[in-house]
Amino acid sequence: MKKIKHHLTEQLLMGYAAGTLPEAFNLVVATHISMCDTCRAALAEYEALGGEVMLESDPAQIAEDALEATLAMIDGGRFVEKPAPLRDQRSMFPGPLQDYIAGDIDSLKWRKIGGGVSQLVLNTSKDASVRLLRIPAGTAVPDHGHRGTELTLVLQGAFTDEEDRFAAGDIEVANEDLHHTPVAEEGMDCICLAATDAPLRFSGIVPRIAQKFIGI
Results as ranks from 00 to 15, higher is better:
T152S: 11
Y16N: 00
E45A: 07
M54S: 09
T196H: 07
I62R: 10
F166N: 04
L133W: 06
E68P: 00
D104W: 02
K112W: 04
G95P: 12
Y46M: 06
D143F: 15
V154N: 03
P96Y: 02
E185T: 09
Y46L: 08
T152N: 04
G76A: 02
M14P: 00
K3F: 09
Q89L: 12
L133Q: 03
M73Y: 07
L43F: 05
A42P: 00
T20K: 11
G50T: 01
V141C: 10
R87I: 15
C36S: 11
P22H: 07
E186Y: 14
A137G: 07
D99H: 09
K109E: 14
H146F: 11
L86S: 13
V130T: 10
P182M: 13
A140R: 10
Q156T: 02
H180G: 04
H6W: 05
A174R: 13
I214V: 15
L108E: 07
N26S: 14
A140T: 06
A17S: 07
L155Y: 01
A168M: 12
P96F: 05
L67D: 08
N123S: 13
A60M: 08
G215R: 12
L122F: 05
P94F: 02
S107V: 00
P207A: 11
G15P: 01
V173C: 08
R131G: 08
D106S: 05
L193I: 13
D104N: 10
L132D: 10
T196S: 07
S125V: 08
E176G: 09
R78T: 05
L178E: 04
E56M: 14
I74F: 08
F213W: 12
I216F: 11
F79H: 13
R134Y: 08
F213S: 06
Q89S: 15
G116L: 07
L55G: 12
W110M: 00
T139Q: 11
T181Q: 07
F159P: 00
E150F: 02
V130A: 07
A63N: 06
K5E: 11
N175Y: 14
R208W: 03
